[in-house]
């Protein structure tokens, strides 16, 4: 699923890369693979050292003397800025590329990264990190992109599925599950969401918010006289199932929709909306036909999970956050 890369700002330094005649081509290869044209980008980029990285990155790009390279790097800059995720500072202020590489290694120890990409000169600093370490001249090799896919099959095992999502959702301020099978009942998909919430609540750096939204299918026959009591039962069951993780997060909310046909998992950012901190935008979304339940056989056919491209994410977010549900949002 989504992977996190750390790049040193000096990858974009034309002076530092002056000895590499293929420097611009390597950058193009990196860009093509990180941000494919017709698919979801499988990569987020670490904004190292409390988001200081992006400022150094911008300065490095603006200092490029070769105009063609600068245009290329500016395009990269705009794409990367939309894909950054904050990483807290660990070491001393990184004064050069070796220091940025060391900072990336340190943060990799806190929460694993998928790749640390450096110039060939700095590779010696990171090479003991194994497959995580990549030098710029290697980014065209298929091995560099192995396991970095916008979709993969995941076994019906709650722990495995939660682990696959953690690298993506650990940076989210809100997460949401859209599923027809969340009732707070034994054996439905509520257990998965509880496990995911528990995993994400254990963040290795301070995080101000985590809102968990459940978009569920309302009980049928909404006009029936017993609809309200059936809906209250759903809420009570969900409340009970989420009780162990409720203190770990800011809010858990339930939305009821008339018909939920697909399963999606969202992660995104929040914003102040009329004085309340609420989900503002979904950054990442996964579509999947099956979510693991307690009691599933892990050797059953593994469903394919795929990361949605941006052109599908915003309309989906709008569908669940701009329209009025039958009931909710209700805090539990």
């Amino acid at each position: 699923m989504l992977c996190e890369f750390a790049l040193t700002p000096q990858l974009f330094d034309d002076q530092r890369n002056s000895g590499d005649p293929n420097w611009k081509e390597h950058l193009r290869e990196l860009g093509r693979s990180m941000f494919p044209r017709n698919a979801a980008s499988p990569v987020v980029v670490s904004d190292l050292y409390d988001s200081s990285w992006q400022h150094v990155f911008k300065e490095t790009v603006e200092a490029i003397k070769d105009e063609a390279a600068k245009d290329l790097a500016r395009g990269f800059l705009s794409m990367i800025l939309d894909a950054t995720v904050m990483r807290p500072a660990i070491g001393n202020w990184p004064a050069d590329e070796d220091d940025w590489a060391q900072e990336a290694i340190a943060t990799n120890g806190v929460e694993p990264l998928k790749r640390i990409v450096v110039t060939d000169q700095t590779y010696r600093v990171v090479q003991h990190q194994g497959a995580v370490a990549v030098k710029l001249s290697q980014v065209g090799r298929p091995a560099c992109w192995q396991d970095i896919l916008a979709g993969r099959s995941l076994p019906l095992d709650i722990a495995v599925q939660v682990a696959a999502l953690r690298s993506m959702l650990i940076h989210a301020d809100f997460i949401a599950l859209i599923s027809p099978h969340v009732r707070g009942e034994r054996g439905d998909e509520t257990d998965f969401m509880v496990a995911l919430t528990r995993s994400l609540a254990k963040c290795n750096w301070p995080r101000p918010n985590l809102i968990v939204d459940l978009h569920v299918e309302a009980p049928d026959r909404t006009a029936a006289s017993d609809f309200e009591s059936r809906w209250k039962n759903v809420l009570a069951n969900v409340r009970t199932t989420f009780a162990p993780v409720r203190p770990m997060v800011n809010r858990i909310r339930v939305f009821a929709w008339p018909k939920v046909l697909s399963r999606y998992i969202f992660g995104g950012r929040v914003a102040d909306v009329n004085g309340a901190i609420l989900p503002a935008a979904t950054r990442w979304a996964i579509s999947t036909p099956h979510i693991a339940r307690t009691g599933d056989r892990p050797d059953a056919d593994a469903p394919f999970w795929h990361l949605l491209p941006s052109n599908e994410i915003t309309p989906l977010h709008s569908k669940y956050y701009d329209r009025t549900p039958i009931r909710g949002p209700i805090d539990i």
């Binding site: 939309d82 914003a271 979904t282 941006s310 052109n311 309309p315």
Partner: peptide
């Protein structure tokens, strides 16, 4: 923009 732009 608060939300990702929906296309390229």
């Amino acid at each position: 923009f608060l939300r990702p732009w929906p296309d390229t």
